[in-house]
């Protein structure tokens, strides 16, 4: 288990429980009452902490190293009935963007998402979830494939941003993202986008145009990360906490501003505290949303999607 700074009280309680269990084993004394009490305290403390997270703490939870990533969601939702597909058919296969057809309760769905790694080696292999242009083009290829066979699309967004590398620029990172925004507007199949971790800027939006855009409770979605915002606007890295508040990047803020369509509750203690429960909640949400979206005529669904994004923004008359 990894603990975040503000989870220190939870770490302490867990360690106490662990110690009691050990002593129970060694000495053969029954301490189950004490353990029960501690577990109750732990639950209460977890609720207390997680019900009062500030924006910066939510950013930290969204990056929690134990948090489930895209492929874990897909594997659990499809119970192994998933065929991963590779490559953009132009340059290469981007390991930071994954996708393929999978089955949920007898229904075939195209899953696409950024993929992070959970060891140092895998993190490098997945380029920290930062896709190159070929990642966005692979995603678009798969979306078109889904459209061809009339299968709905679910995207899982979890990225610190599109990769700002030299080759990315050569191969048109800007064009690749722009193309996706444009093409996703016109997809004739239902599209659901779920932010499961970090939703950083154009890199997130590049697979984020959907009939329903949902955020998990402890994620963030904005035009820039709090760190980069701090470095640009305050010219120091030290204002990330202030920036995280100013950016209004939490699920609640984004919903309040009409920029997303819904929030998906996380288990107490965050998605990483109980991944199975998280997967079940997400599965239920996808099925519910698809039931509604299925009933709409494809042309009408596209119109609604386009009109929704066209209505975003706040201007005043001078």
């Amino acid at each position: 288990m990894n603990y975040l700074e503000f989870e220190a009280p939870l770490k302490e309680l867990n360690e106490q429980i662990e110690k009691l269990r050990e002593s129970e084993k060694k000495a053969g004394v029954d301490v189950s009452n004490a353990i029960n009490d501690l577990q109750k305290t732990l639950l209460k403390k977890t609720e207390e902490i997680y019900n009062n997270l500030d924006p910066w703490q939510k950013v930290q939870v969204s990056r929690h190293p134990d948090r489930p990533y895209t492929l874990q969601y897909i594997e659990h939702l499809t119970q192994g009935q998933f065929v991963e597909l590779h490559g953009d058919r132009t340059v290469k296969d981007d390991k930071a963007m994954v996708g393929g057809f999978g089955m949920i309760d007898g229904r075939s769905i195209m899953f696409i998402g950024q993929q992070k790694g959970n060891t140092t080696k895998l993190r490098q292999y997945r380029n920290f979830g930062m896709a190159n242009p070929e990642g966005y083009r692979k995603a678009l290829r798969l979306m078109k494939l889904a459209e061809k066979f009339n299968k709905p699309i679910v995207t899982f967004i979890d990225t610190p941003g599109a990769f700002p590398g030299l080759e990315a620029e050569e191969r048109g990172q800007g064009e690749a993202i722009a193309r996706n925004l444009y093409e996703m507007m016109k997809l004739r199949v239902p599209v659901i986008c779920i932010i499961i971790g970090e939703g950083a800027s154009g890199g997130a939006l590049g697979i984020g145009i959907g009939d329903r855009v949902m955020m998990l409770e402890n994620t963030w979605y904005s035009v820039i990360s709090p760190e980069s915002c701090s470095s640009i606007l305050w010219r120091t890295w030290d204002q990330k906490v202030t920036a995280s508040k100013a950016l209004k990047l939490t699920a609640e803020d984004m919903l309040g501003n009409g920029l997303i369509d819904g929030i998906i509750k996380e288990p107490i203690g965050g998605a990483h505290a109980n991944p199975t429960e998280m997967f079940e909640t997400v599965k239920r949400e996808i099925k519910q949303q698809l039931d509604v979206l299925d009933k709409l005529d494809p042309a009408k669904r596209c119109d609604q999607r386009i009109d929704k994004f066209c209505a975003m923004g706040v201007v005043v008359e001078s």
Binding site: Y182, S201, L205, Y221, C229, L247, M254, M312
Partner: peptide, 17 residues
Amino acid sequence: RMMEAGFSLMQMAKTSA
């Protein structure tokens, strides 16, 4: 524009739409 954060991001979607 950073000062409009999420709203600015969504202008990318809006103009493309």
